[in-house]
Design a protein around this nucleic acid. Structure first.
Lengths: 402, 402
DNA sequence: TGTAATTAGTCGATGAGCGACATAACCAGC
DNA sequence: GCTGGTTATGTCGCTCATCGACTAATTACA
């Protein structure tokens, strides 16, 4: 009764360990790799040959000599394989094809209404996905995995949304099942803010292991990366900071039933509502951004106050998890420095210096692409996991052995 | 230039992997272990023999048969080795000797003033440590490691306190250096709340992977365990919730310079100060506990309100990290259900149901021992790390080979 | 008391990984 | 442009952890 992972010798020559090191995209020499893994150089050479045969790695030309024979540099080769990154929002859908390094090839957007339910929205995902594959000259067989972000709580293990407040009809829906039925590859689903945190970290904060990504748009949420790992919490709803209480005394009612929730005070629609009391025309966060860009004083002031309110909640977050970076994304972040200035003002005054001395607070650099990039990363992480690499190596070894 | 970990074959026969499984204290059969590790039973047998020779594991008598030859059950054997757990408080010192399963053998307390500085306090630690070793019939050679908790921020890597507000003279002091000079074993230092979180989890919440331990005493702090790992943050000051702002409008000044910090409102001394305005005699959290136990109405009301204030901050923590348990410790927890009722009242009303449906809020069960137990766990984790077990196995192999 | 069931100990075969040595490629200086 | 120093690569026999299969031991139950 032995399992499949062993067939005489060890699992799969451990080539996947080597591969995981190359995942960061940096080219390495054999000696570097040997040091990094604590193995002999000759062993590393053998493992590299396995990965070369699989087409997973390749040589980089630039051979730099330090006085002797120049070392050949080995790096991850994306090959022809691709993944799909899907970012489902309340009112729009964004899909991207990326190679295995997470670099975007093609992307596209479509207006949808998430309230139309899972079949309608996921049907659009299938359409856009197929279009993109065709545009980038790939076939369905080149696709390795799909990552999906949805605007609500998800049980990451099963990929099913759980009681999502703004996604009627999606509760418990088998999102991976639908997409796997059309693409026949693994589908990973997570909260949209979580994948944005992944995307942003991969794009601009590779060396930062403790990071909080905050999305301020129609809703407000945070994705937390601690010790380099995404924190989902016990029920997968960690980072739901939109309903933490703030105290500016307006008793603003929130859709959750409470009052003075951050989301009822500082979200795009909340700021827009406040601006309407000044006789300004505004409904969404985008409207607010437009008013700020036009230089409207009331809008500026309201945005800065919203920043302060977000800052109040974030100062608590900083005290609790002590991150080294906070990245602000979502439509409200597009108001530029005014919003972030309000955040900084409160965070740096309401937190002990020890926690803020190395803290950076910055605007999202990947902007609207953070979601699809993060979704791709999620898919790549799965497609390139040690288990799957081992399986590929085994697939290479078996025909030879048989 | 190869390193010491390899001398011809593999590092150390991988016996440490096996040992790590047995660390939970549960006895296992060979077949169970083989399944758990994905290795052949014969291999497991060989590894067990190595650990038997080292005296690290042993057989458990009770042999249960399921219809055939009864399996022999293998379990961790604490042997004669011990560790010291040290819990340094603002005004008292607690030291315990425990075996390698973390079970206490002897413990003792002494009144100290942390303001007397590191040499005086650590001198007392050395005295008490030696006394305890003698009492439990162990010698210095039986000691494997020391774990220490201090009431302030610590750089865990070096064991040096960093700008601790209530520990004048300790800033940057080499705590491990002092103790290693006397005991000649590794010394691990961490924040007191962090080790209490470790101790509490080990004592009563072994199966809970997401837990927040909150200490409410002279100060207020939290230790966060996420995905089974202690979260220290980027600078090692995660969980410092004492200076998060609460809003009951009293503008209470805090020693940190801000107003309305949780610590200025709900800590032992803060509640005591409030009770003095009612003409009651109270200075510390212990005084408050005494008044509550005597049934004083004002004290009851003040404690419940303090619970609500703590609950306000904890509801933000729940939204952010989504734990499955919150454990309340520290002197204020000794006021019994009144304090925790206030916490529950606010947390369950100010947090979305999704995050609280499986949330438990409970009083610390290990009480005053949480600190020393956690410190021991910290020491044991280090003393029993894969690297150190590998080294022990090597030490066994080398004389034979040489 | 015998038989089925289950666990434990033993041993030859296998191959991942190692170190050592020979070879290849490049630089600098004469 | 040759030559010696330097650094990287390729090759090969050896070692030992691990495997699977077989045998021995121990119990339950008919």
């Amino acid at each position: 009764m032995s399992d499949i992972t062993s067939f005489g010798g060890l699992a799969a020559s451990g080539a996947s360990d080597l591969f995981q090191i190359l995942r960061d995209g940096r080219p390495r020499t054999r000696t570097e790799l040997a040091d990094l893994m604590g193995l002999a150089r000759s062993t590393v050479t053998l493992r590299i040959e396995t990965l070369l045969e699989l087409g997973l790695v390749g040589f980089v030309e630039e051979s730099v000599s330090t006085g002797g024979r120049p070392s050949s540099r080995i790096a991850l080769k994306s090959g022809s394989k691709v993944v799909l990154g899907v970012d489902i929002g309340a009112s729009h859908l964004r899909v991207a094809v990326t190679d295995l390094t997470g670099h975007g090839l093609h992307r596209t957007t479509r207006a949808i209404e998430i309230t139309e339910g899972p079949e309608a929205v996921l049907g659009a995902v299938v359409e856009l996905g197929n279009e993109l594959l065709q545009e980038s000259g790939r076939t369905a067989t080149d696709l390795l995995a799909i990552g999906v972000g949805v605007p609500g709580p998800v049980e990451h293990r099963t990929g099913r949304p759980i009681n999502p407040p703004i996604m009627p009809g999606w509760n418990g829906y088998d999102v991976p099942g639908y997409l796997e039925g059309h693409f026949h590859v693994p589908v990973l689903v997570d909260n949209d803010v979580n994948i944005m945190a992944l995307g942003e970290r991969n794009a601009a904060w590779q060396d930062v292991d403790d990071l909080i990504f905050v999305k301020v748009a129609t809703g407000i949420g945070a994705g937390i990366v601690s010790s380099g790992r995404l924190q989902r919490g016990a029920d997968g709803v960690a980072g739901d900071i939109g309903h933490i209480r703030v105290h500016n005394g307006t008793q603003a009612p929130c859709r959750c039933g409470n009052v003075d929730c951050l989301e009822a005070v500082a979200s795009g629609p909340a700021v827009a509502a406040k601006l309407r009391t000044f006789g300004l025309e505004a409904r969404t966060g985008e409207d607010v951004v437009r008013l700020v860009e036009s230089g409207n004083r009331d809008a500026l002031r309201a945005v800065r106050q919203a920043g302060r309110d977000v800052g109040e909640v974030l100062s608590a977050c900083v005290s609790l998890v002590n991150p080294s970076a906070i990245v602000i994304g979502g439509s409200m972040a597009l108001t530029g420095e005014h919003f972030i200035a309000g955040i900084r003002e409160v965070v740096y005054s309401r937190t002990i210096p020890l926690a803020t001395q190395h803290l950076q607070i910055a605007q999202s650099s990947s902007g609207l692409d953070a979601g699809v990039l993060g979704a791709s990363i999620l898919a790549i992480h799965h497609a390139m996991s040690p288990q799957r690499i081992d399986a590929m190596v085994l697939g290479l070894a078996e025909p030879v052995a048989g």
